[in-house]
Design a protein around this nucleic acid. Structure first.
Lengths: 342, 342
DNA sequence: CGGCTGTGGTAATCCGAATTAGCAGCAGGC
DNA sequence: GCCTGCTGCTAATTCGGATTACCACAGCCG
């Protein structure tokens, strides 16, 4: 029968009702029958009976004051977690994170309170609440290195989802091996007989961009063409590609691959007949297309799962390797074929 | 310059460095320049300087021990928050919740740790952690009334997303007015000349099911046909409908409407020519269809937003009405037309 | 009977911050 | 010179539970 007391039940209340001390209640609850504290079955049962009757629940906050772990896994995203677009890039990561968190008995704390200043969210702001969580997972295309550096300097346990460059020290991460995947895809194009292959995308800034360009250059050479996408329409891009005699466009962004495909179809340019189009990963922008592009996918769900596991290892001190790259899933697809002349 | 101390900084550390007492640090941090505690600018600046230099952050949990609010909004779902299917029913709710939480400066705590016992998650389990949050939002098709009753009995601040029947007292909720929307849609069908209208779906159990059936009965009468969907294939359902001479099927589940439409097309039954099909809400199951069904949509995003607002009002004691029904968005669509004979 | 070892429990302290009560020191008034 | 009042700060206490140190008592031994 629940107490109708206005204030919540405490161990002190239980102690009074069971005619023991608060200490005893705590000992019973924590099953400490060892060494210094021995509770005979009779007393233990009496305490447990009162607990059952009152429906007492320990205050998790008070508990955390003395214990180390809080069983809360922080998740910091540099964009909204629940965007309106359903074809969400982050969704699979979070599904993996949730799955593993559930299995570990952790709750997920989404830091939605972080205010947006100067156009982006920042971890460290006036009233930073990182410490509520035992550790934190970081999601985002780009993460300012000063924030990473500070996390490292403060020795705060965190794992980045996605590879990050050193920031005043190595950053713990679980990333996708964009470099290897892009290199493999480029080599495959070469094996098919292609000689004019271009990288289409940003290629700088975020690690994920730079990694792909690096993989491309590793296979195609340092001077292989890189066509930036900024401020150019898919039409202009297509013109440029054809003018240069390119036969394979490696699109960093799946969305660009889709746009390129669409504008090509519009103009009667055959894909892959006249131009092969390869998607280097998954779309970070909401676009719908059920076209089976050649290229690769990012193991997003697995990355989420492994990131939680790595954080757990860091927290329990059992981590051996703090940086992990997962292979991307290569897809044959239908948009990469041998060049016309071959 | 961040301290490289192994343990986290506390107010005591700050106090020592600034050569004041822990009390003073707390007073400075809480801007208490009033009445009993006056801190001159000089001392205040000295303390603030140390805080800035060390990067001290107050432990939010310790704070919660003494303060009321923690700025954490709990979210309890009876299913996974991040399902693998992208066409997720809960997504819009959460988007609304996140949006409002962000604006209020709250963090979102997803109770993913709640273990699944006897096939479902339960709020109250061995190590219940509800109290980490200031209050909680509940999501799910069905919520056991004993859990609701206990929340009410314990006077824990919560809001259900979706209408709920009383459970030892009125349940605070922000729901969708399924009853009115279903009634309106049914009446619209009647105005078009339909006389044989059937309700297709569960119609019992969850409030959202019962509400729809009630709205249907209010317009179509107590004995209007109700065809359960459990253990029947869409084909069997269609046979039954046609056999009974039904001209409008009101599908509680959008997924059933889609399935019905598909099997009708397969068999050469014209929708809406031979049979009108109406969708009473949005799909709780992942199904893809861009068909513009007649019927209505659930204002999911708005419900999320309003639920956070209601919880805020409950917490600050400014709530006037604790139960709120939002109107559904009626859609004309193309699957409801006058019956053949009309 | 004094000393020793186990039992069975409790008082006291701590965690980190917030809050209350109150104390020194000094100025001004009479 | 004493009381009052203000300034500037701190000691002590609180929140709820975990932990440590220790105490009272019984039983047994020599």
């Amino acid at each position: 029968m629940p107490d109708k007391a206005s204030t919540r039940l405490t161990q002190r209340d239980i102690a009074r009702l069971a005619k023991v001390s608060q200490t005893t209640v705590s000992l019973v609850l924590n099953n400490r029958g060892d060494a210094s504290a021995r509770i005979p079955a009779e007393t233990r049962d009496r305490v447990l009976k009162v607990i059952r009757e009152t429906g007492y629940q320990a205050d998790p906050l008070a508990r955390r004051m003395t214990k180390q772990r809080n069983q809360i896994l922080g998740v910091f995203t540099y964009e909204s977690v629940f965007p309106s677009a359903s074809g969400d890039f982050y969704h699979p990561f979070l599904a993996g994170i949730e799955d593993r968190a559930e299995r570990l008995g952790w709750d997920l704390l989404l830091f939605t309170s972080a205010p947006v200043t100067e156009g982006r969210r920042r971890i460290f702001h006036e009233n930073n609440r990182l410490r509520i969580a035992d550790g934190c997972l970081l999601l985002g295309r780009e993460i300012p290195s000063d924030e990473l550096a500070r996390l490292i300097a403060e020795d705060y346990p965190f794992v980045s989802v996605g590879r990050r460059d050193d920031a005043g020290g190595p950053v713990p991460y679980v990333g996708a091996d964009y470099t290897a995947a892009t290199r493999t895809v480029t080599e495959r194009a070469q094996e098919l007989g292609h000689r004019r292959i271009a990288f289409v995308g940003i290629g700088v800034g975020a690690e994920s961009s730079a990694d792909r360009l690096r993989g491309f250059r590793a296979a195609a050479g340092a001077r292989a063409p890189h066509l930036p996408t900024t401020d150019r329409s898919p039409g202009e891009l297509l013109d440029d590609l054809l003018e240069r005699g390119i036969t394979v466009a490696l699109a960093e962004e799946r969305a660009d691959a889709i746009a390129l495909y669409a504008v090509a179809a519009e103009r009667g340019v055959d894909v892959p007949g006249d131009l092969s189009v390869v998607a280097l990963g998954d779309s970070t922008r909401p676009v719908a297309s059920d076209l089976d592009f050649s290229g690769f996918h990012v193991p997003r769900r697995a990355m989420g799962v492994r990131a939680v596991e790595l954080l757990e290892a860091l927290l329990s001190g059992t981590a051996t390797e703090r940086q992990l790259l997962l292979p991307c899933e290569l897809t044959d697809g239908i948009t990469l074929t041998p060049p016309e002349g071959a």
